[in-house]
Design a binder for these strands. Structure first.
Lengths: 208, 208
DNA sequence: ATATCAACAGGACGATTGACCTGTTTGAGA
DNA sequence: TCTCAAACAGGTCAATCGTCCTGTTGATAT
């Protein structure tokens, strides 16, 4: 019996490491997570870890560029493309997040925001990677607003500025929700943003 | 010569430590700051540090309850009390922050947000302390909106919900600004919030 | 078959962390 | 004046950090 044959599968090993790192970085934080802890979670030896990720910061960069960027794409950009207009998409996205948080029972925060707060001051390369994810997110939202303008669904808005506000409101609401372990900030921001967008999308005139 | 007389001034020593800790926690982060580093910055011995703060988390709690809460009070609650109405105050506060950040040339982020992201998942007592600062902040803003309602300056708004949106937009904009080392997210959110509040404070009627 | 290198195992490395120790000095009350 | 607890000095402690080492296995090319 040669049952303890060594399995050579670099892609799978690398994926296990990055998966474990993404989960740990998002829930516990980058600095609070040790390489030894990740080795155990991913069930890889020190040699394998060093082979794929000689330094922790390379693992951090991989998590940002692969997992965090993908998470933003899935939760925000895809629904944006699927919905008819921006307000519908934004309300749907907030609803999805709120539902999932209530199901899990705890608020671990926005992955992008979590990592950005912690590492952006220490490592310029990570900061750039995180900043570009924010930029992609905001530009996708801005483009959606622009589409609504082109389709005459709305007039008199600044797509870029409005996109910044939505992204900021989401990130901030998630931060407050995380600090209080309470989803209500997200619910409140969802309602306020919906009302704000509704008033912009349904034209009004001054009454004075 | 007895020139090296030991100076006994517990209040001053404690204040030096907390000052150094607040500065370091806000700019570098809680976990990224070592106790030895703080001892050097505050020029205190290991014995003095252990006497005043036997554990790091007690220092963290002191920073949150004394310095972070005070910072929020000064930058947000005081201008809120000084201004005629909420929109004026909010625009002033954003303007102050933007000016100071442009003067400094770097964005270290919102002190409350920075600490909340990092420690709220590890220490329940710190999380409660941070959450209560968020609550005080939001309630002060909500009370100001209520005052404006009582004074007939505005109608048809939900003070609590609107306060949540403003706090979230500020926190989130600061997070994006920090990640990109760029004040424009704050400028954009300032403009959008000003427009939003202006439309709520100057009544409009549907035009369709 | 043999050479070769990526992939992996297991552990050791120095550095640094937060905590805490014993001993000394100071100021205030008895 | 004497006592004693608070305040402080200086250094040590085990634990853990991230990194890297040597050695072995497996797949691939020739």
């Amino acid at each position: 019996m040669t049952g303890n044959r060594r399995t050579i599968d670099p892609k799978a090993v690398r994926r296990r490491i990055v998966d474990a790192a993404y989960d740990a970085f998002v829930t516990q934080g980058y600095l609070a997570t040790g390489m030894l802890e990740l080795r155990e979670k991913a069930s890889v030896s020190g040699g394998a870890m060093a082979h794929h990720f000689p330094a922790k910061r390379e693992l951090g960069l991989a998590v940002i560029r692969n997992r965090v960027a993908e998470a933003v794409r899935q939760t925000w950009i895809e629904p944006l493309d699927a919905c008819a207009d921006a307000p519908t998409a934004i309300d749907l996205i907030f609803g999805n997040i709120v539902s999932e948080l209530m199901r899990k029972g705890s608020v671990s925060g926005c992955p992008l925001n979590n990592m950005a707060m912690e590492v952006s001051r220490h490592d310029e390369e990570m900061r750039d990677a995180l900043s570009s994810v924010f930029a992609v997110w905001q530009e996708a939202l801005s483009a959606k607003f622009q589409k609504d303008i082109d389709a005459n669904r709305v007039v008199g808005i600044d797509p870029g500025r409005l996109a910044t506000l939505v992204v900021a409101a989401y990130s901030g609401a998630m931060a407050i929700a995380k600090a209080g372990q309470d989803v209500r900030p997200l619910i409140n921001c969802r309602a306020e943003l919906a009302a704000l967008l509704a008033s912009k999308y349904s034209p009004t005139v001054p009454a004075g």
